[in-house]
């Protein structure tokens, strides 16, 4: 590169930097004080609905991570039934179990950030699986990400 062109490029680089120094946009979401509203159909931690379940075991069979296990549960007045339980520790959020369940007994929640003090605590037997992962213990400010031509991603409070 000849010298004058190089000088021009130096100046351009500096000006671009300066432009962003004064420009508005910022990409940061102040998680966990702010959290994104997730789009419809987001593949969060799956949740179980016992009433709908037909005990077909398909979810346990398709799970690629062996996260779902069938548990035998005594139901009052009826004979023993098999219901799925999940180990969130292993789950990879592929959503196969939800998509294959013929009865619609599994559904996605929008929770993806449940943390726990022990590994055992992440194993959810059918009854706990039915409650789903506990919601956040605090209320973050919710923001909705919107794609935007000017700043790329805009986080609209919602």
């Amino acid at each position: 590169m000849e010298l004058p062109k190089r000088v021009v490029h130096h100046i351009e680089a500096l000006l671009t930097g300066a432009k962003y120094l004064v420009a508005k946009p910022r990409m940061t979401v102040m998680y966990p004080e702010e959290a994104q509203i997730l789009p419809e159909g987001y593949r969060g931690m799956p949740k179980f609905n016992r009433e709908k379940c037909r005990s077909c075991s398909l979810c346990a069979r398709i799970c690629p991570a062996n996260a779902i296990k069938m548990y035998t549960v005594e139901v009052e007045g009826e004979k023993k039934k098999k219901y799925p339980g999940i180990n969130y520790n292993r789950c990879i959020f592929c959503g196969f179990c939800v998509d294959i369940c013929p009865a619609g007994a599994l559904e996605f929640t929008d929770i993806h950030d449940y943390a726990s003090y022990s590994l055992e605590d992440l194993v959810f037997k059918p009854d706990r699986f039915a409650e789903g992962p506990p919601p956040r213990p605090f209320k973050p400010k919710l923001v909705k990400p919107m794609l935007d031509e000017e700043v790329g991603l805009k986080y609209v409070p919602g």
Partner: peptide, 10 residues
Amino acid sequence: KIAAKVQLRY
């Protein structure tokens, strides 16, 4: 701070 501002951060 300056680096962060240019880099769209806080």
